[in-house]
Amino acid sequence: MAIKAINDAGGLLGRKVEGIFYDNKADPNEAKNATERLLYKDKVDVILGFWRSDLVIVAQPLVMEAKKILLIGGASTPVATLERIKKDYKTNKYTFTTTVNTYLTMLSMERGVIEALKMDYKKIALLVEKAAWCDPLFDEWSKKYAKNIVYSTRFSTTATDFSVEFSQVQSQRCRYLAFITTGKGGTPSVKQWYDMQIPAVYVGYNVDSQDPNFSQVTEGKTQGVAGSTVGGVAGWPITPKSGKFYEDYKKVYGAYPIAYTNGVSYDALMVWPMR
């Protein structure tokens, strides 16, 4: 949609934009190979994308070495979006991002913790996926809320069974479950939390829950789940452009987009005609 819009408006500096797409399969080796193909076989000018932080950490040095623009549209690890650029600006100055980094996502999620503590939800369980973007959050919260966190663990991004973890949440009498995942456990964790009748509110970050059909996907088991999001949820007008985009997207693809396919990626491309 973005490429078509740019080209329909005359392209960039009068030149047509061509998109070349590869699926990195959420695998660091695939990401490395795809990045090298883009850089040296396809000879692209700009690389956009990367929704997973562990992949952009691998790919960023390759793009920087080739002195091409990297416009990150989802991965939020401060390593790529902040720390490397600050540490070595000359090498990494070609990196830009249109998404938040973990520090800000963490702030939004922390609102839930603060509210919960005010409401006397004193015992917190912290279940966080083993992914680069979560590292600052896990480390900081573990220290900051050490008094309240009575159970914490990191789980694989491919995990889909949380019965052991949820049993711990229950046995530790946690009332607040901070569950943070961008991986495959999003939908299963909500269903399992509901089916096990875990007596803790489920709050955090769950990419699956950004699907406008999440209630239907989980058979309504989302009741009581609250989460933060990046890029907004279809139907909520963050800017005057949001609503039109959601409807246009639905016309083209037959369904509303999840957060990462909406503004985060779309904006990363559409910002180009602005420069």
């Binding site: 509210e115 709050v203 209630s215 989460g227």
Partner: peptide
């Protein structure tokens, strides 16, 4: 950017949901 933790289609709002995030 905007909001998080909002009830989606078919889902009711919980008291915590209304106050947080």
């Amino acid at each position: 950017m905007g909001v998080g933790g909002l009830p989606m289609a078919g889902r009711k709002k919980s008291p915590l949901l209304a106050r947080s995030i």
